[in-house]
Write a protein that binds this DNA or RNA. Structure first.
Lengths: 246, 246
DNA sequence: ATGAGTGGCTACTCAAGAGTAGGCTCCCGC
DNA sequence: GCGGGAGCCTACTCTTGAGTAGCCACTCAT
């Protein structure tokens, strides 16, 4: 059985400090497992992209905690150490995907707002941006809006950044065209993005019941009627609060 | 009150009956660990409530995964097995808290909508319900809106139920007073609750910058302007979709 | 061929934490 | 006093999964 170098097994007495006991049970060496078929060899960048894709699928399907590195490796058709040759750890792998999703949404919202100077069209375009993001077949939105790792500061930071940037982008348009100060404009912007986000999310779960274009138009209409109800800064002055009987 | 029985100190084994306190920190082999002060004995219901409070604090602060049962026990000032005498497992403990939060919000939204027949007041009241829920000092909203256990079907079900019930409640008012069918009404309702939820959440993180009453009024105004822009079913007929080209 | 570099694999270590076994101590009814 | 049950405790077991050590195989330039 032991063909030749059985000495290769234990590198050296690996025992560290505090074990009273049992060095090693029975490390009978030789060939414990059959070699298994060799996997396809890929270039570094290509492999990295493939790993990111596999990881996204698994994280999206299971969430961070339920996703095992072994699962991701298996999905990519390779073994765990390869994963660690490309990413220092599970967290960094997750963050790479999360970052990409966050940047994607922020960019889409900014582009939507910059695509026109007509505010009604801006609302429509921004709404479409949210729907597009949610409808993306790779479901990256789950990492951004439904992360199960928000307890991790690095993740919190990304998600907060996304919220903040999107809110700021919308708020600055509001602040430009009304007499609202920064803070009230931010609050209104939060309300509008919230409507977009939650409505798009809802629509996604009920996909098929309402055509996407119809859904977008309907919610955009809601948002536009809401925000356009406030007077523009050149309409006069003084913000027309509802019946402010605080 | 605890003037008397000092004998309660050491279980048995080691020497007892020594003077109050300051005995000997003698690491007698028979007593591997210092006795530790005896805990207060509580009745079953009282203990259960205390455990739920401790668990909520820990889950809210750390999330489900980062919260250890040991942490919860420590927070409650008892040991782990006691926790398991009251709850079959970590998940059930979490679900008990989540359920409570979900029911709380659903009830608040329903009450807000039923509190008046004036739709503008309904919007204001519902907005207040969301802000109240978010502002609750026990922060239960974190379990409902920021759970890190959504991968667990039992949790998903609760969160989905919350979303669904709140949306239905709002949608039924919309459907009653407009010509919208069920699905469009649900979508609009999702948009409105989304605005409430995200704006309230935003306001909470920026607490202090805007008084709560002002924030509520502002977002309620946004929502009301938005939804009241759609024609009532007795205004005429045919829903006035924006520029519905589809 | 050959040896080195690259890509990959199997099989481990190790820590954390859920859940459990078994025993002590108080109090209450006898 | 004296069972006995209720309430707690300490100190385990056992599983899971991240991260690692060390070896093997293919390919290509010399």
């Amino acid at each position: 059985m032991a063909v030749s170098d059985d000495a290769a097994m234990t590198p050296m007495a690996s025992q560290s400090g505090s074990g009273p006991s049992v060095a090693s049970p029975d490390p009978t060496p030789s060939a414990p497992t059959p070699p298994a078929a060799p996997r396809e060899r890929l270039g570094r960048e290509e492999r990295r992209r493939q790993l990111l894709d596999a990881a996204r699928e698994v994280f999206v399907a299971s969430g961070y905690h339920a996703a095992a590195m072994d699962d991701i490796a298996a999905k990519a058709g390779i073994s765990k150490p390869v994963l660690y040759q490309h990413f220092p750890g599970k967290l960094e792998l997750y963050l790479a995907l999360l970052d990409s999703g966050v940047e994607q949404l922020i960019a889409a919202v900014r582009e939507a707002l910059a695509s026109t100077t007509d505010n009604e069209e801006r609302v429509v375009a921004t709404m479409a941006a949210y729907f597009t993001f949610m409808a993306d077949p790779d479901s990256t939105f789950r990492l951004v809006f439904e992360s199960d790792l928000t307890a991790e500061p690095a993740v919190r930071e990304r998600v907060d950044r996304m919220t903040h940037e999107c809110t700021v982008a919308v708020a600055s348009v509001i602040a430009d065209d009304t007499d609202f100060d920064h803070e009230p404009a931010m609050l209104l912007a939060a309300g509008l993005t919230g409507a977009a986000q939650v409505a798009a999310r809802w629509w996604l779960t009920k996909d098929g019941d309402i055509p996407r274009a119809t859904a977008e138009r309907l919610v955009a209409s809601l948002a536009w009627r809401g925000i356009s109800g406030f007077p523009r800064s050149d309409d006069g002055d003084g913000v027309d609060y509802p019946d402010a009987a605080g």
